[in-house]
Design a protein around this nucleic acid. Structure first.
Lengths: 233, 233
DNA sequence: TCAATAGTGTCTGTTAGACATTATGGA
DNA sequence: TCCATAATGTCTAACAGACACTATTGA
């Protein structure tokens, strides 16, 4: 919070400065939403931008990203990882020539943003216009999520500590952009030893109550399967 | 070649400068090898370093990486992709605080390096000591290769245009670090429509000659399979 | 002829997906 | 009671891995 004043606002920036840009995702209304902040553009108009700030001298990049995420969100995200460096000649709010992109995840329900903040969640399908380089960072973040989905516990970082299997499946369907088969999904989950049931159940509207689970990876499965040629050709 | 003089050698670099570091891989003697260049360290000793150079003003990062790869290799690699930004406080030959890592692939057989160059291929299993940040870039490059193996035509970029299926399988085994089943490998390959046979055969030593294939992806397979929970927990 | 490697056919256990059925609450 | 959702059992087609076999060359 202490850093908030420096993480938004139109400020003159040395062209040689490096910006760190953070894409935060959370599930909202069956959609992925991302956090944007309102920033005056110096010509009197307002624009939405990804949370960003210049890297401080010699500051480790991961620290800078965590600082910027905390500033915009008011709390730390459940996950934060670098996407890459974006150093083309596309435009960026900083006017600088190099940006480092990060992607972070916020569990469903953590919707309260700091009151002093100009931040708001926007569905990824209907984003306002962004500066070209921030648009590229945004798209790389979505791509990264999908690629890392089966290598990192991404889906669990988008859920509260306790969740139903239907909620988990909805997150996977959201990220993959396609429906999954319920029985197969649960069988695969069981085989992976990733979740454990709790004693609690949650009744939601009409049907039968669902058991709550928590993320509790047990053991690494040694049995890697054969090669898959799922090339995106 | 024109750029070689600037891509090695001990040079004073502004601490704010950004370095671009390139990890080039090629298969050699049943192992992965990577290209290192000999660089005097200013204190009279010599060290091996990853090919690197400072980014020129406003130069797009991809252009810088291609320039550096060409400088060290004498020719363009068959594939070149960014790994990420490394901005911690670990040491780097440039003395700078930020490096952008790239990974590139060179087909087997392109072993002739520019004569004027101090570059040499080193097996990845027995690398000389590198500066800590370059060591991290090196490890991230290997990791990246393995992760993208089934999403990008990586194996084919490590082979000449025409190759036998045994050669292709050896590349996969090299990158995955485990043996694969011959019949299963070929069945999966056939189903993916990634290669097409040519009229040519190659006799190599004793056994039956092998048919040569070329990389020729036909169509994207629409039938994505179920979720895999291959989390690295 | 033997040795060595390429390439293929068959069998079997595993698994993804379809379908059906039971379980358990709210309206 | 009916309806909606959770959870699970069964069947089937597809597939990975094992094994064996044929094919074709050099020594």
């Amino acid at each position: 919070m202490r850093d908030r004043s420096s993480s938004t606002g139109a400020k003159p920036v040395r062209r040689s400065a490096i910006s760190v840009d953070v894409v935060l995702f959370t599930p909202r209304n069956e959609q992925l939403a991302t956090l944007l902040v309102r920033q005056p553009d110096g010509r009197g108009r307002e624009r939405w931008v990804l949370p960003w700030d210049a890297r401080h001298d010699d500051e480790p990049l991961d620290d800078a990203a965590a600082r910027i995420a905390r500033g915009a969100l008011g709390t730390a995200p459940a996950w934060l990882e670098q996407i890459g460096a974006f150093g083309d000649r596309r435009r960026h709010p900083s006017e600088g020539q190099l940006s480092i992109g990060y992607v972070g995840l916020v569990p469903a329900g953590v919707t309260s943003l700091p009151e002093t903040s100009d931040a708001a969640w926007h569905p990824v399908e209907e984003l306002p216009a962004l500066a070209p380089r921030q648009r590229a960072i945004m798209e790389a973040a979505s791509e990264e999520l999908r690629l890392r989905l089966d290598q990192a516990p991404i889906a669990f970082r988008l859920l509260p500590v306790m969740f139903t299997l239907s909620e988990l499946q909805e997150i996977y369907e959201l990220l993959l952009g396609r429906r999954l088969h319920k029985a197969s999904f649960r069988r695969a989950l069981q085989g992976a030893w990733l979740v454990e049931p709790t004693d609690e159940w949650r009744s939601e509207g009409r049907g039968r109550p669902a058991q709550l689970f928590r993320y509790a990876p047990r053991k690494r499965r040694g049995n890697r399967r054969g090669v898959r040629f799922d090339l995106l050709v």
